[in-house]
Structure formats: structure tokens, C-alpha cells
Amino acid sequence: MTKALFKLLWDVCLMELAKMLGFKSPKALAACQAAHDHHKSWQILEIFLFAMSGELLVPYVRQALEKKETPSVEGFLASNKTPNAALMAKIVFDHSLALHVFRAGVRRNNTEVILCSRSKFSPLFFGLNMPFYMEAFVRDSLIRIQCPPAVNEFMRKNETYTVTGNESKGEGGDFVLENLNRKSKSFMPPGLPTDEKWLTISRNIDKLDEIRLNMQTIMGLTDKDSEYTYAYDISEEISAFRHIIRERKYLQKQSLTTLSNKPLDSAFLHFAEHAQENKDSHYTHIQTHALSSRLKHTPIFIFQEHREKHTNIANKTKAEISTHIETQLDTLKSHTLSQKWKKVKNLKKSVLLEFLKELNEIKDAESQSESDVE
């Protein structure tokens, strides 16, 4: 989910936020964009959520107070917004907030919160063409619908686990196993690990961990994992990012742009509706195809050049070009052209493009003749 938001927002505003946080070089920005470091990525999204939501709400609240009205959720949603403000409101309160709520649900093993926030966020997987997440979401949804009540209840009680016993520190099972694996590796002596070493450490990991904790207590040391037991104060970063948003008058602009003032694709404002359409289309597709089939949806276009690149026939595969040519041939109904197609269909891509160009010229000429007759 974190990677999905980075994919959606990187060019829009997260790149500027990353630069503000000190990611200056191309390699540093690329590492930040990849969102490999979960903790750093989470903090960046938290800064974005609280900074952008604050800048969205302040003007509305001031306007409501000037009119001597009580600010409300309904009032904010119904208020007039510039294109950038409308876009950010969708992203912040539909998707960024959904991720925030999802994490809270995971931490507290709250099934209803987890499923509700995940469902709200899920169209983004289909809008951004993330096949692994699309399949995982669909499979999990179907399992929950089809499994017996007893299994469903077991899943509900064990969505996440807490190793420490703290009810507010739940983690997914994969994270628990990952931490256990990391702990096992920390006891591994230098050199190539053998089966005997793995067996010894795995059988005695609890005793080894107890010995290490006792020694840390005696020596007054802090466990290296304890750095994540407190919330880092990001209030200064939030204020700094709010200053950038306000200074550039981003939410007051009458055109749809990035934070760095680059024009966005005109349809990007409706990315949520497009993502939902892709999700509905995917559900229709899997009714007659395997769940693992990779249906490639029309992506969300962030910039106009992305749309032009996607629609340019020269960027299509040979199979896609061939399909397009055969559709044209069905329309033209020419025996001569059909025979020529049989001769060139297995040749290289450039030949197919030339043949398609010829078909388009013939079709345009026929359309022109019909117009002249009328």
C-alpha cells in the first residue's frame, strides 16, 4: 500500500517533500521513490498526510467561521475547491487516510478496521496496474467469503500478532517471521552458515535471547530494536512542508499541476473513478479466467506525455499491432489487402507499422470520398 501511494504521488508532490527532507542526489531520490525502507517511507507519508490535510482544512474553517457557520465534514466536502485542492482532498482523505487507518487496525488486530480501510484503498492497485497486489486482494476477499464460519472467526481473531504482549503493537505474520529470522541471523557466527549451526541456533534461540537481554541489562545497553518503540516527532517537518505548499500557493491555483508547477493530465483529477472502473473490469474478467491471469488495465496517466506514449501505436507489441491491423481489415473487406497481410504478418515490427499506415491511408481516402459524395 505504501508503494502504491509513492507510485501515485511521487511526481505530484512527494519528490519535493523528499528533497526538503534531504534526499538530494539522483541515487538518493531513486532510493526514496522505491520505498524500500518501510519506516522512512511511512514517516514521509505521515508528513504528507498531516501537512496537506492541514492546508486543505484551514481555508475552509476560516471561511466557515467568517460566515458564522459551524465547520463540518459535510460542509468541507461540499465546499468549492480549485482543481489541485479537489485532487489533494481525494488523495488525502480517501487513500492516504485509508493507509493510516489500516496501520492502526493492524497494530490493534481489528479486523473490521483492516478490511474497511483496505477495501477503500484497493482500487488504487487496479488503477496503477500492480498485478501481485491485485491478485492477493481478490484471493483474500474470495477466501473470506467462501471459508467456513469457524475459519473466518479464527482469521478474524488472528489478523495480526503481538510478540511483546502489547495490544497496540500488532504485526502481520510475515513481519513476525522476518524479525525471528533476523534474530536467528544475529546469533550466527562469522562464515558460511551450515545446517548444524542453523539447527543449534534454532533450538536454543530463546535461551540465547534471554542471555543477551540479561547482559544488556547488566551493562546498561539498549536493544537495537527499541528505536522503533517510540514515535519520532515529525511536527517540524510537517510545518516545513506546509510552508512550501502555502508559499507556492499550490492549493489556490486554477489549473491542475504538480507541486513544482508542472501541468498534470486533465483526466488525473478523476483517477479514483478510473481506478474503480479498472477494479470492476477485473472482477468481470476473472469470472471467465483464472485468478492468476494478468489482465493489463488502462493505467492512470499522471502527465499528458504518459498518455501519448501509451496510445502511440509504435509503442505497442507486435501482437497488439497485429490485432489492430486485423480489425482494420475486417472493416475494409479487401481480398487484396488480406492476401498481402498473410505475407507480411510474421515479419518485423517496422513492416507491420508500414502496412498499418497503408491501411489508415486507404481508410481515410474512402472516408473522404464518402464525404464528397454527400
Rank of each mutant, 00 (worst) to 15 (best):
M155C: 14
N166P: 05
S72N: 04
E69D: 09
S281C: 12
K345R: 11
L17F: 08
L21M: 15
E354W: 06
F125R: 01
D94E: 13
F268K: 07
Q146V: 09
T323M: 11
V101K: 12
T217I: 12
L49I: 05
R242T: 04
A319Q: 15
T82E: 02
P71N: 04
L21W: 04
N109V: 07
K224W: 09
M1D: 10
S72Y: 08
I244S: 00
L337N: 09
R203F: 02
T311V: 12
S202L: 11
H324A: 14
G127P: 05
L192A: 11
L192C: 09
E16R: 10
F125S: 02
M20W: 05
A51K: 02
L5E: 04
E227R: 12
I244R: 01
K81H: 11
T327G: 14
M20N: 10
Q304Y: 08
L269N: 07
K363M: 10
A231I: 15
G75F: 09
K19I: 07
T258V: 06
E366Q: 14
R248T: 06
L192N: 11
E210T: 13
L329R: 00
N152I: 01
H274F: 03
G173D: 07
C32Y: 02
P59C: 00
L264C: 07
A28M: 02
E153C: 01
N110H: 15
L99A: 06
S338Y: 11
S367N: 13
T70A: 10
E358A: 10
A272F: 06
K224H: 11
F132N: 13
P189F: 03
Y60I: 00
K19C: 06
F241W: 00
L269W: 07
I286Y: 01
G170I: 03
I114N: 05
K316G: 00
E153Y: 02
S72M: 04
D372P: 00
Q304C: 03
R62Y: 09
R62K: 15
L199Y: 07
P148F: 03
I47K: 01
Y232A: 13
A150I: 00
A272K: 15
I313L: 12
N80Y: 10
V138L: 13
A136M: 12
N84F: 02
D364Q: 15
I143E: 11
R107K: 15
Q63V: 06
Y161V: 10
L99H: 06
K249I: 03
R203N: 11
A34V: 05
K357E: 15
R107P: 01
